[in-house]
Design a protein around this nucleic acid. Sequence first.
DNA 1: GTCTATATATAGATAGAC
DNA 2: GTCTATCTATATATAGAC
Lengths: 200, 200
Amino acid sequence: MVQSPAVLNNKAVQILQGAMQEFLQNGYAGTSMDKVAATAGVSKPTVYNYFKDKEGLFRALIQYVAESRCQQVMGDGNLEGRPEVVIRRLITNAIESELHDLDYQNFVRLVAGESGRFPQLAQAFVEYLTKPAVDQLADYLKGCSDINAPDPEATARVVLGATVFFIMTQSVMHGETIMPMDPQRLVDSLVDLVTRSPTL
Amino acid sequence: MVQSPAVLNNKAVQILQGAMQEFLQNGYAGTSMDKVAATAGVSKPTVYNYFKDKEGLFRALIQYVAESRCQQVMGDGNLEGRPEVVIRRLITNAIESELHDLDYQNFVRLVAGESGRFPQLAQAFVEYLTKPAVDQLADYLKGCSDINAPDPEATARVVLGATVFFIMTQSVMHGETIMPMDPQRLVDSLVDLVTRSPTL
DNA sequence: GTCTATATATAGATAGAC
DNA sequence: GTCTATCTATATATAGAC
């Protein structure tokens, strides 16, 4: 029985791959164990041999995907240089890598959509993806003396919040045609807001 | 057959109330027409007499809830006064009214979670809730000469994006214990960022 | 460990009585 | 218009053969 993605043999990964395709496409309740088994190329009892039940498989899958995404979000962790350049690069990278990543968008939809019924999984998302990103940026901002951020932690939430909101509205919620905007304008405004000289 | 919430008799509303409770709690695929009928206090064929099928009922419900929320989000539309005061009040109101509104959070979870399979409903959310809020703030910012916002539309997205992200992370995704923050700090930082004197 | 076959429950949707 | 009763499909989960 697989409880943690830390220990995964070949067949467990094979099942998780099939489960990923189905759950990301059809949500938790919309996914049947029959289709998971078929997509994974195994029989249904084999699925139940590796995972206790549908909920156990789902939890293992979310953890599996979150761990995969974890490194990517952090980037190389190399936040060095002048604030205008660093912040611009950080936001540009986030938008470019997520705005057209359909798998990531479906992952966000799935975790957000199930956050009421699976609060622990939503918390794992916050702990392993959201919080590290905010903390990393906040730590960088703390080291910058010549920017407009008396509260670096709150400022980091503003910067990343605006970025996440942009991706959510434009792509996840399909708002690109309804309220279109060149991502560059958001980046420019954010850099402009944060890197001005602080109040005298 | 009810197609639009614009024309709703008593029984249709009664069914929508039951549907709201079930869909907001259990999601689309997790909701059965049996439970909708039971919660609404009618029989299943009666539900099908007023709505074509499960999908038709769901679409009508989302439109119904979105229209109810539409006015509330806009507030009284009275954005007048000095920018520090107006922006502070706007964000504070949004956070106070949404951060602990469980129905609203479940509505966000539902629409976001189904946005991949019901893109039209997500677009209605953007068109009737997100876009009006952004436009209203952008219009106000355009009229302010003494603030730090060369691009009012992008700045409005930063302000509302940071606010929505805060509510999403703290409440919807249950992150309050993982990355706690007093909402006042976010409000202060946003007001501070936007209302500084523009670059010389 | 992995399969075929199946038990049991519940889903969406409707026929037909009133 | 509204109900009880029902049809058909499919869901989760497992028994038992290999």
